[in-house]
Design a protein around this nucleic acid. Sequence first.
DNA 1: CCACGGCGTTACTGGTCAGTAACATAGTGT
DNA 2: ACACTATGTTACTGACCAGTAACGCCGTGG
Lengths: 224, 224
Amino acid sequence: MGQTIKNAAVQPPPRERILAAARDLFYRHGIRAVGVDAIAEAAATNKMTLYRHFGSKDELISAYLQELAKEGDDLWQRLRETYPDDPHAQIEGWVQHVEQVLTDCSERGCAMANAAVEMREIDHPARQIIDDYKTRKRDQLVRLFSEAGYGEPEQVADEVFLLFEGARISIQCCSQGPALRVVRMLRSLLADHAPKVEVEALAARDAASERKAGAKSGTKSKET
Amino acid sequence: MGQTIKNAAVQPPPRERILAAARDLFYRHGIRAVGVDAIAEAAATNKMTLYRHFGSKDELISAYLQELAKEGDDLWQRLRETYPDDPHAQIEGWVQHVEQVLTDCSERGCAMANAAVEMREIDHPARQIIDDYKTRKRDQLVRLFSEAGYGEPEQVADEVFLLFEGARISIQCCSQGPALRVVRMLRSLLADHAPKVEVEALAARDAASERKAGAKSGTKSKET
DNA sequence: CCACGGCGTTACTGGTCAGTAACATAGTGT
DNA sequence: ACACTATGTTACTGACCAGTAACGCCGTGG
């Protein structure tokens, strides 16, 4: 087990460097626009080592997408572990994640969705990874809203899901437009559909996070 | 003006054929994935004629996007001409258009958004066309909801806009998932935010079109 | 009948890209 | 010290692709 101890301290092994470089370049410039040479160079290695770790560019693409998927899944698991048996807190955590994603990752949108647009061949292995991931996320939203006692969990989950997807695609098409207001939309939508019994508690929670988010013109339909 | 009269009857001039071929191939396989040779061949012509009409592939891409934009704009203008001074009817017409787009164009989503994902270079002329178009659509929605007397036209327009965008991107990522239910969402969302005075009239209108759409589980939150 | 413009055809250039071969090197465990 | 393995290096192949050159064809308009 104790191999390459010193090397690991200085710089990660080539495989990790390649994946990191691929991730950066694929996301910034697009998958089809980036050649393996560029990735190898950005990873401070060469094409041969790349091909020893990933048999083909397609394999590298799959590994790239699977890494993204794993991180997305990890985030959800962390949410569940951080607020066990508190689906409302998990929802709020997810909304904050959405907010963060839309404020820093600006410009390039969702790497998974972009990959799906670029890899159009229906039999490409990447498509399966993406589809599985997106379906999983949508189902997790359904489960979450269901656990939180929402009346129509599927409907709310779909709406929230599509708003988030729409925000990340239109951040690439529509200059600084609707995407920036999506967090406000999410909060107001969730408040509208929240289980009736806990409306007050939820309103309090929302008010707290709104305060730190810097409220401008009221979320309307809330205080009335 | 009267030139090539007989030819036009048999088959459209090369420029139109090239644009039509480009449109089909770009949309189905992606812009980067399609070479000019393939387009020329699909247009039953050759690369030289293509380059005589479009100086470069980028120019062809721009022409392709501008054609798409023009058709989108025409649709809106037709809506305004068909139902002058009746913004509610225009809204309903737009929703029906959304429904139609999401049922037949299945699989490939929005050609404009896909193009934006593929053309990542910020200075690419295509990006300007796409951005202008999307911004225009969003603004037209705002104006429409404003004319229809909605209380928060910007908010409703943004939400509707993002739902539609989200539906068209996730139709490519998430197998047969949330996208199919977006029309229901739109109708219920619009009903929720419609100007209070006309709630009954709008409900009647919605009920009429719901009947033909084949209602399953109720739109909820409406009849309560 | 002739000139001209739009179109077709072939062949080419220069560049990029995925993938491979062969060889050299350095670190590790024994 | 030795062998093994992971890595680096160089150079190559074959394919594809955007864009161009040169020439030939044909219809129209004078």
